[in-house]
Simulated assay, not measured.
Amino acid sequence: MATYNGGLYVRNQILSIIGQTYQDWKLIIHDDGSTDDTLSIIKELVHMDKRIQLIEDGMKKNGPGGNFMHLLQYSDAPFCCFCDQDDVWLEYKVKAMFDEIQRYDNTIPQVVYANGYTWFSSKCLIGSRCASVFPKSLRELFFFNGGYQGASAIFNAKMRTCINKSYEYIAMHDQILNLSGVIYGNIHFLDKELFLYRQHDKNVTPHIVQNVKERMKKAMKNNKIPVLDKSYFEGIRAFYNVHKGNMRQEEVQCFEEFLAYPDYAFWKRIVEIMKRRYKSNNSTVYLLIKCLFRPFIL
């Protein structure tokens, strides 16, 4: 768990982990310099449950992605989950995901994603499922910004070794795990809703739109919001620079084609989307609409 000024939420999240039906776990927490009561809440819960460990190593200002990636060095468990500070896990989340990943060959890198529900706690409202698309190819992931939610994943020690590298830039840990799942060929999806993804005005990632109509309206209306945020584009570039030596030739070519995309003129970009069959929300047409109305990156 990576924390930063999460005092309003972190207690409920940790208590939801303590309440899991599967009890053989260890929670490792690193704080990124909170100025609220986050640390005092965590220390109180550390004294209550010895399975909770707070890492105080003096490292600060990594941002959420860097903080999560920094935490990987402290884990030696056979399986890991990223844990956001402001969600709530349903009591069977760990058990369901642990059972699912054990179905696969864990002598090689594996990652399993589940689903969750958006949760508007201030309105006492549980919304739609967090994810409606499940990308398994690079061309589906490139325009996915932060990627599939890291807090919905469980991954094995082999995958932890794959992603635990030194990157010149980290947009989000989710993106690194998503791309690794595709590159190393073992990404799976469990069709169950296992957590509540809290939506509030301090979310690091944007709120999840609740239906197709809202998604299309956003694509056409928000002409100042880029199709792909520059930070995520740079995250893809940084990932490629680290992992290209382990990629197949067709994957290298796929990355290089994409990384050249911002240099193209407007109509060349449109042609490239159709030629390469890039997708957003599992749709090339939807991506074309976004690109027609909005810039590619800031």
Score class of each variant (00 low, 15 high):
G185H: 04
S128R: 13
S75K: 04
Y232G: 02
T107W: 06
W267N: 13
K192C: 07
R103Y: 08
E100M: 09
G19D: 15
I187T: 05
Y261S: 01
F134G: 00
L125K: 12
C81D: 01
G127W: 06
G245V: 10
A2K: 04
A151Y: 15
L179A: 02
I170S: 04
V242I: 12
R215E: 13
M247C: 01
T3C: 02
R198W: 03
I108Y: 07
E214Q: 14
R215V: 01
S280Q: 13
I17R: 06
Y197T: 01
Q53H: 14
G147R: 07
L288Q: 04
N241P: 02
I108P: 00
R103F: 07
H173V: 13
K26L: 11
T21M: 04
N164F: 05
L15D: 13
Q102R: 14
S34L: 01
D87Q: 06
K123H: 12
A114G: 11
W267T: 13
Y117H: 12
L39Y: 03
G63A: 05
Y184T: 02
F82Q: 09
S280D: 10
Y232L: 06
N223D: 11
Y169I: 06
N178C: 15
C80A: 09
P295E: 09
V204R: 05
L72P: 03
D263F: 01
K213G: 07
